[in-house]
Design a protein around this nucleic acid. Structure first.
Lengths: 236, 236
DNA sequence: CTTTGAAAAATTATCGATTATATGGGGGCG
DNA sequence: CGCCCCCATATAATCGATAATTTTTCAAAG
């Protein structure tokens, strides 16, 4: 438990995490300019701190930095999502294949555990049925991390996380044009089953389909094409 | 008029590139602490600038940042090199496979051109026969970029560059325990030939062998095991 | 009514100083 | 004689101010 860590890291680390969380949780619309002074006031810290956080985020491609124009949240675009999807498929399936080939019982256990937690978490928040809940997104991320974690490669784990997070922004902002109901939990269960029974080819194929299906739905979503100004708080 | 662009970006960008170049070109030994004040004086800039550069580099894993202990160049270690190699094989072969399947004549042309330039560049600098020259390393990087560039995925191109650079540090610092002479240019030629004749499987296999062979040699190198203080300028 | 121009405002990039934290050495205590 | 605590020094983290740049405003000319 580590009791509580009152000063876990530094101020920089803290605001970095909070801005990052805001972006991933869809509290800041894609394309929004991230002005430094407002962020300073909001977090009660100085320029340098915010600047360092934004620099880190832009190196992760969650934030875009143009030389004299400041920072902004990465915008959504179709080509980017397509590219992202193809690369994610490679990274995630590679990790899963390695895991199936090499990982042990504790990996299987953590996959089963993550699957169960995910299944018991309501995907949507009451009242806004086509918006994903923070809790579900966290569990979903944890499930895919658990799947990949068996690969035994710290570097691959880090590499796959970036694109996963980038895709998270799309998942959060594109309203699923759910023309047909989709059994996401069923897909997860099938992947986990194939993985824990060490059926690598099947697991990889199911995982690829799982990723691509999400992208398909997002690509037909209404939000992908039109204006990027879909802020919850209207622009002034 | 803009004549020449003397200040292409910002001071930060400049310092970032110079420190990065110093690390990749083996002018700073792995594990070295990167103290901020000396760097400030050396580049004639202020704290913030150096700090931003180091932050960016640590996000790229070329520099390690520990909360209250400052920055240091990533150290060399066997496990890291192994992991790096496995991941690089996946990234580079994926890019090459996509390129062979999708790329056009101009890609082939650029591969041939890069191969030729690489072949005409002396690998070693006179007088230090087991140390790679800056020029050759640059051309080598350019060749592998040319190979991968046909993949058509900007994201994959960016992702593969990080591990390539990390491996560059190992290539530069580990004295090749060249027990047997190795025809590196021959390997490059074979890869390029298989790639341009669209023999994906062969090209991928040759590329994987190329990458792994380098790692094998580095792992048996004298430098990998012992002390990390193997600076070119003798330690005081 | 549109277009062009420059000044004003806003915002970013940079700087030097201040504060907080870690490292190392010396004296007190066991 | 060795170990631990405390203070001096070095270094990192943070801050508020200044300089450089971009965007906006506003007005006058066409």
């Amino acid at each position: 438990m580590t009791t509580t860590a009152p000063k876990r890291g530094s101020r920089s680390q803290d605001v970095y995490e909070r801005i990052r969380a805001d972006i991933l949780a869809a509290r800041i619309p894609p394309g929004t300019k991230l002005k430094v002074n407002p962020l300073c006031e909001r977090f009660g810290v100085s320029l340098s701190v915010v600047r360092e956080a934004l620099t880190r985020l832009s190196e992760q491609r969650l934030v875009r930095s143009e030389p004299q124009l400041g920072f902004s949240v990465v915008p959504l675009d179709r080509a980017g999502l397509l590219d992202l999807t193809n690369v994610r498929v490679e990274l995630e399936t590679t990790a899963l294949r390695w895991a199936v080939e090499r990982a042990d019982l504790s990996w299987e256990t953590s996959v089963v555990a993550a699957l169960y937690r995910l299944g018991r978490t309501p995907p949507h928040v009451k009242g806004d049925e086509d918006r994903l809940s923070d809790d579900w997104c966290a569990e979903h991320a944890a499930f895919h991390i658990a799947l990949a974690a068996g690969c035994g490669s710290p570097l691959l784990m880090e590499l796959r996380q970036g694109p996963y997070d980038a895709a998270e922004i799309y998942r959060r902002w594109a309203r699923p044009a759910a023309t047909q109901p989709r059994d996401v939990q069923g897909e997860h269960t099938a992947i986990a089953e194939a993985a824990t029974t060490r059926n690598a080819e099947l697991a990889v194929e199911l995982l690829e389909r799982h990723i691509r299906r999400t992208t398909e739905i997002l690509l037909t979503s209404e939000l992908m094409g039109p204006d990027r100004s879909a802020a919850p708080s209207g622009d002034g």
